[in-house]
Design a protein around this nucleic acid. Structure first.
Lengths: 116, 116
DNA sequence: TTGACACATTCCCATATGGGTATATGATTG
DNA sequence: CAATCATATACCCATATGGGAATGTGTCAA
């Protein structure tokens, strides 16, 4: 067996630096492909291919506008990554234990307020 | 050019599900290779190869004990991933703005206490 | 020393890249 | 309709897999 497809999940899609650059660029808002081509200094077909991968894992959405295609970030697809890596935060954050207590406290208060 | 090496950085290393499983297993503490072989239900050479990748990106450390090799998690290598994905948390956490304010407040107090 | 045990490394192979280049598709303009 | 602009796809190729199988290396026991 070979390596898993980059479209297998967000972890694989985001392993490629160019694709992280694209997401970072889209964090500022919707952008057409040519914008990304200039920003990344990469050939247009390559950018389109990276965008395809990001679309397949749901990290970006597209919208047509005349002859342009506007890509927009959909960070929701990155949640699994965040959820997974969050559990290792203890390893480097010495104040995590402290923060943990505070967050737990916050959660209690919030439930008390019944704001959901 | 082909895909970047899995040993290029933590992002690539962690794109492989088996390697995430290994890290999760090591989260409980130091373990010999055979433990992982049983837990992952994977052949020993494959486990050793995955461990090599994780070692090369600094996600695990090794220690010799007789004929065993005890692997230990080093979550510090995962910090770059956390730092990157953290910026997208807004996308799915509706209460992020609220939390943001609280954290900012905490930061202020902390600096006031001069606890570093 | 010999054998067993715990791992690491090597070799083989099917597969999926990521970039380069050429070309197809779709919309807009003249 | 023809020409042009904005993208997407198709192809080619060098490269790095991840698993399977066999073998090498170091340690402990008899």
């Amino acid at each position: 067996m070979a390596r898993a497809a980059t479209t297998a999940d967000a972890f694989n899609a985001v392993a490629e630096p160019r694709r992280r650059q694209i997401l970072d660029a889209l964090a500022g808002g919707e952008r057409p492909v040519n914008d990304l081509v200039r920003l990344l200094d990469l050939a247009q077909p390559q950018v389109s291919k990276h965008l395809r991968v990001l679309r397949e894992v749901g990290a970006v959405d597209v919208r047509d506008k005349g002859r342009q295609r506007l890509y927009r970030l959909n960070g929701h697809a990155l949640k699994p990554i965040h959820d997974w890596v969050k559990n290792y935060e203890r390893s480097w954050s010495e104040r995590f234990d402290q923060l943990d207590v505070v967050l737990e406290d916050l959660k209690q208060k919030e439930e008390g307020n019944g704001s959901e």
